[in-house]
């Protein structure tokens, strides 16, 4: 499937800022499941530099913009040919050992309820790690309803489970937490989704989880949509949780508040430019 992505994010500042610094994890890697035909990141008036590839195989860029910044706009445009690999991640050049993905972060720290959920699923008896991983993803979705607006960004998994509602970020955090409790290395993945399971266009950037299955490697699970990523998905980057994997992690120096606007289309076929 050929997907064309056009994603513009705009940060507006109530008062001019002295300096904006943003770390951008916005570049998809070449994978068996995705061939990047073109990819461009641009921002008017800002410098984009300090490029490197991190241990998880993600390209990371740094955006800086100095003195009296009123707004920052980042535009991402790209064309990707995708292939369904049933969620199995192949072809990524990464060097962080899977064991390093067993550690908790504040967003995935276990609670009694998370432990109980992990134990419940574990007690079901599974034929190997892959079957356990599927069961964990299913249980996550069973316990957390997909409700837009029920949570803000950055709610810890423990709280999400108590609430029983959330969006893709929350599902991913719960799954990551119970996977780690079950001894499976797990990580947070960001990306784009052409349409959700019901075939409707998906508005926002998407997030899911990858679990490390011995013998198979990293396998994606999208609990929000009860599936594994297929050719509707474009994988961008990963990290221990939503904070570490964030496409844009920024900081501004100055007074006043910040608002964010964005527009995103993920469409079929070559874009008309």
């Amino acid at each position: 499937m050929r997907l064309t992505i056009d994603h513009t994010t705009r940060y507006l500042y109530e008062q001019p800022q002295r300096r904006i610094t943003q770390s951008l994890r916005l570049t998809p890697a070449q994978l068996k499941s995705q061939k990047i035909l073109s990819w461009d990141i641009s921002s008017d008036g800002a410098q984009i530099g300090a490029r490197f590839v991190d241990g998880a195989g993600d390209v990371v860029l740094l955006l800086t913009k100095g003195t009296n910044v009123e707004s920052v706009e980042i535009r991402v445009q790209g064309v990707v040919d995708t292939t369904d690999t049933a969620g199995v991640l192949t072809g990524l050049k990464e060097s962080i050992p899977p064991l390093a993905y067993l550690r908790d972060t504040p967003l995935t720290a276990p609670s009694e309820a998370l432990r109980a959920l992990a134990a419940d699923v574990g007690a079901g008896g599974h034929d190997g790690a892959l079957s356990l991983a599927h069961a964990l993803a299913g249980a996550t979705r069973d316990r957390v309803d997909y409700v837009i607006g029920a949570t803000e960004a950055g709610v810890p998994a423990a709280q999400v489970l108590d609430l029983g509602q959330g969006v893709c970020q929350d599902h991913a955090h719960v799954l990551i937490s119970i996977a780690r409790l079950s001894g499976l290395p797990a990580r947070y993945v960001t990306g784009y989704l052409h349409s959700d399971a019901s075939g409707e266009a998906h508005e926002a950037s998407h997030a899911w989880a990858e679990l490390f299955v011995e013998g198979l490697g990293w396998v994606g699970f999208d609990p929000a949509n009860r599936c594994c990523p297929d050719d509707r998905y474009v994988r961008i980057g990963s990290g221990l949780d939503a904070l570490h994997a964030a496409p844009v992690r920024g900081m501004s120096f100055g007074a006043g508040s910040e608002t964010m606007e964005y527009s995103l289309t993920v469409s079929l076929g070559q874009s008309q430019q």
Partner: peptide, 11 residues
């Protein structure tokens, strides 16, 4: 902010 990006890119 951004120190690690510069560090990791060799600056």
């Amino acid at each position: 902010p951004g120190l690690m990006n510069v560090y990791r890119s060799g600056g």
